[in-house]
């Protein structure tokens, strides 16, 4: 029996995962996403990253970015290193890809703001 807290939504359900029967039995979740989270948390915990990336524009020294999909939790700092090595030099907009398929993990680093489009 394992316990965790669902982080999918702000509700924060306390999940109990019973793997004794071979099949995973999840209780405490208020919705299906809670069950999916519990299963993933046990087998392959995944997280997203929200951070910034350096830009070449002095008015906007950094641009907020995030991942388009979750990556294995253990790879967070590897991906951070990739993001920190990049400088955005064009006026990318919200949703534009900054790094495609970062470290072949199946997630893109995308801009999460139109900031660079707004500056003069």
């Amino acid at each position: 029996m394992k316990e965790t807290v669902c982080i999918v939504c702000p509700r924060g359900c306390k999940l109990r995962i019973d793997e004794s029967g071979g099949d995973l039995a999840v209780t405490g979740n208020a919705c299906r996403r809670g069950r999916d989270f519990a299963v993933s948390e046990l087998k392959d915990p995944r997280r997203t990253i929200c951070t910034t990336v350096r830009t070449a524009f002095p008015e906007v020294p950094v641009l907020p970015v995030r991942l388009s999909a979750e990556i294995p939790k253990a790879r967070i700092f590897d991906v951070m290193r990739e993001i920190n090595a990049v400088t955005v030099e064009s006026r990318v907009g919200r949703g534009d890809i900054i790094i495609k398929d970062v470290l072949s993990l199946g997630a893109d680093v995308i801009a999460s703001s139109n900031l660079l489009k707004e500056i003069q």
Partner: peptide, 19 residues
């Protein structure tokens, strides 16, 4: 607030603060 978790109720999506 560049972290995500915004908008689940209003937009049905997980958005960052700027988004």
């Amino acid at each position: 607030c560049i972290h995500d978790g915004f908008g689940l109720l209003r937009f049905g999506e997980k958005l960052s603060g700027p988004e």
